[in-house]
Design a protein around this nucleic acid. Structure first.
Lengths: 197, 197, 197, 197
DNA sequence: GATGAATGAGCTTTCATTCAT
DNA sequence: TATGAATGAAAGCTCATTCAT
């Protein structure tokens, strides 16, 4: 409806998904391929082919291959400030469950897989992974503090609980699928809540 | 019977010890390099150089590069049957702590890093990672069952506790060091024990 | 009279001086870069960047890269007719010294370096280098004839003297600086004068 | 005689010219091409083709393209110590002429052309050119000292004469052929001898 | 005139793998 | 079993040149 009524030049307007700009298509392709086969094993030629751009254009935007990975990490793993944590006082299990459900923050599963795989190869990736992990722990800690207003458990135990929950969340998504072992975040939330009771 | 030394002779003659055989040195080098930079980013020439063997010899033992990885996974990630779990009835926290301290099973930290990184690339690696994870969970479950003879918590909760503990152990070793966030396994053991009380 | 500004208009309007026109800036940049790294090793993109013009504009003025070199040679190595040679009769040494001091003719040191380097690659460059060399020899010969009115030495010896002086002048500038060996043109002028005495 | 009596493997022995080893053929090809078109404008693929070796082998011997140039300079521009200079006392002109005829030292004309062209691009090349020039001047000075035992001219003038002769020799070979202007070294030797008389 | 994204051929280099010895 | 020269496909990257705006 919109497309036909606009103009013959509508094909070039940004809202037409099929024709998103080249740079974005390159990053899309790279995200998919890096997540699937790893950075080192993905030739730039394959990225270009999947993105349907000539190989030279890839290097127009990203002078070196590593710049594609860096751009991906810079632009697609933004860890937004935890504006509001949806905590339910007196219900730490439910609070953690809610947190788990909002997890993606702004990094797709593919991006998180990339962060894990390439972390020890490239400094900037490692730093982002650290930030993501830190933010997740911080958010879990904050949520638990709100959910347990009495501050019943000591600080240290809260910290451990937050780190454990973060570990399960990141671990499960990135690796349990590889092994086939599933962990139900809600059950873990429940477990942790019990331990703080 | 012996899996690392093929010839009984080599294993016994003392002077061979210092000049460990070429095949072993190749695997040692590959383990180090694959863990450090990843399989795809490690040239066979570098493996040969680090192992101090000529390039041709590497291909004598391992006709294709992938065979080095497969051999590594086959020979250096053996998950031994949990013959005995050192459980202390009535002390689930201590029991888990003991389990954590014996974790290496028979896969070195380097090998575990390799398993994680290359899991989604090579089927045989993925399968091993699954086995390792499964074995760890199973052992944690069994340990907890022994430590809590009354079977106080229901089966499902025990399972979640075991999976959570396994997740933290593997997560921390493989990724916390990358991010700098430390998790104390003993504190997690304590946390989980509390949740089962 | 004015050699750099082709159009009288540009030469007179004051505001144009600081923003010298794009074409000139391109040639300035190319002269510097070709002299420094050689024609083949200098990318057009670098010329454009140094000239602070967009890449496309360079190809607007010079459709092919080689046209930049040709324009440089055409416009910046003009060998002017030897209108007047400042000869001092009876003082061949002083006459040659004067000639040496006016050497630049109208080719900068950078342009002469370019002529030497690219001579065997591009015909038009080679031809210019030949003209420059010929003109220099001719001028030296003429100067010596004027300085030695008696025509004491035979013609052939005068010719050799002129060629030797030209060789030293061109050689010294283009290569002595590379090797660090200095030749004082005045001393050579003196030497040659003696040989003709 | 030797070849046939040695063994069937004689075909691989070094004295069979037709089958000189790959590394030498690569350097031969590079010398020819670098002298002709310049280092930067010569693709490694062309070197390999002319040398009749696969492209990969070139990089087996010379990991980077520049290493070919460096090897050429290292191995084919040896400046031998001037053991004996063939000086004729009382005949400086003849002495210089003799020197000129032995000029090649051990750098072929092609190698000398390469030294000149690539001198300002690569430090090691520049250094060799400097050494070559210095050695030539030194030899000319020494020859003149022997030829003029009375040390009639002062030291400084001898030095200038030596430098001038060296300049003409190097200049003529590398550049006069480009421009077509010939300088007869014997005539220059004569000229210089006169100036020292 | 001015602009910079787009293009693809070609460049240097890497690398797994082979093979004669 | 041991060796390293040999091989060529493919990788990352460069670059002159075009072209729509």
């Amino acid at each position: 409806m919109h497309e036909t009524s606009m103009s013959p030049r509508a094909a070039h307007s940004p809202q037409v998904l099929e024709e998103s700009d080249s740079r974005t298509r390159i990053l899309d392709a790279a995200e998919e391929l890096f997540a699937g086969g790893g950075y080192a094993a993905t030739p730039t030629s394959l990225i270009a082919k999947l993105a349907q751009v000539p190989k030279g254009l890839l290097f127009h935007y990203f002078p070196r291959k590593i710049d594609v990975l860096v751009a991906l990490v810079d632009e697609r793993t933004l860890v937004e400030e935890a504006k509001e944590v949806d905590a339910v006082p007196g219900d730490p299990a439910g609070t953690l469950s809610k947190l788990a459900r909002r997890l993606p923050l702004r990094a797709s599963p593919a991006m998180r897989r990339i962060l894990f795989r390439e972390a020890d190869t490239h400094g900037s990736v490692r730093e982002r992974l650290g930030r993501l992990n830190g933010e997740l722990i911080g958010r879990a800690r904050f949520a638990l503090e709100l959910a347990l207003p009495g501050a019943r458990g000591d600080k240290a135990r809260l910290e451990v609980a937050a780190a454990t929950f973060a570990a399960v969340l990141l671990y499960q998504e990135n690796l349990c699928q590889l092994t086939g072992h599933q962990i139900d975040p809600d059950a873990v939330a429940d477990l942790i809540a019990h331990s703080l009771a």
